[in-house]
């Protein structure tokens, strides 16, 4: 799933300053699961913003809506009726959702309420951690199902750097060393010898470095 975190109220207040009628839009998928931008968060944020505006002696009107996904036209289109008389849309979706709304409503101001972090796993309740960096050419088969691109702070592909200690990464004792995890997994599945091979330089052209990615399935297009 995609994980995101709400910006500080202070920052959101500044972002919406000058707009008097806001459509606050939640998203019912990833950001609902990570408690950042679902229906409940929409309600809380909208009332916080109204209150803050009131404290400044001004008025803010909010319309609250949550759609199943902000990244699919089918759901985005459900907002059409609510758009007209709003000055701006405050999206509580991930970065993709914000842009989905902006593309669908080209004459409307669309503002982000969240900071999108990446693709992650719910490790346990309340803890999400990045697992994939979307490099566009998955090599998990070579690393026992642990991604060195996303989980090693230096995206090393040939083993741990000299800062790996007690299973933790040199940059932060809270962060697991991705390479210790690779090593442990490869050992557990009896494939340590695979790690003896020198991994050749990676082709990053399939990653963001090669420009914005897209997938075009002619067979599926209308």
């Amino acid at each position: 799933m995609i994980i995101a975190e709400q910006k500080t109220l202070e920052e959101i207040k500044q972002i919406v300053a000058g707009y008097n009628k806001l459509l606050v839009v939640g998203c019912g998928t990833c950001v609902t699961v990570c408690f950042a931008g679902g229906e409940k968060e929409v309600g809380i944020l909208a009332s916080e913003l109204r209150m803050a505006r009131q404290m400044d002696g001004q008025q803010l009107e909010t319309v609250e809506r949550t759609i199943q996904r902000q990244c699919e036209w089918e759901f985005v289109d459900q907002l059409k009726d609510a758009i007209e008389d709003c000055d701006a849309i405050l999206s509580m979706g991930c970065g993709v959702g914000v842009q989905g709304l902006a593309e669908r409503f080209p004459t409307k101001v669309v503002l982000p309420a969240l900071n999108t972090k990446g693709m992650a796993l719910t490790v346990q309740e309340g803890l999400w951690a990045e697992r994939c960096a979307g490099c566009g050419n998955c090599v998990l088969d070579k690393f026992g199902g642990v991604c060195p691109i996303a989980r090693c702070s230096k995206s090393l592909q040939n083993g741990p750097c000299g800062g790996s200690v007690n299973g933790k990464c040199e940059i932060d004792p809270e962060i697991d060393c991705g390479w210790q995890l690779v090593y442990d997994r490869m050992k557990a599945i009896n494939m340590l010898d695979k790690l003896y091979e020198v991994q050749e330089i990676k082709d990053w052209s399939t990653a963001r470095d090669g420009g914005p990615r897209r997938i075009n399935r002619e067979d599926l297009r209308l």
């Binding site: 040939n158 020198v198 991994q199 990053w204």
Partner: peptide, 11 residues
């Protein structure tokens, strides 16, 4: 980190 130290050596 386009290249890691191992790959730099080889390069």
């Amino acid at each position: 980190y386009d290249v890691d130290s191992m790959q730099l050596i080889r390069m």
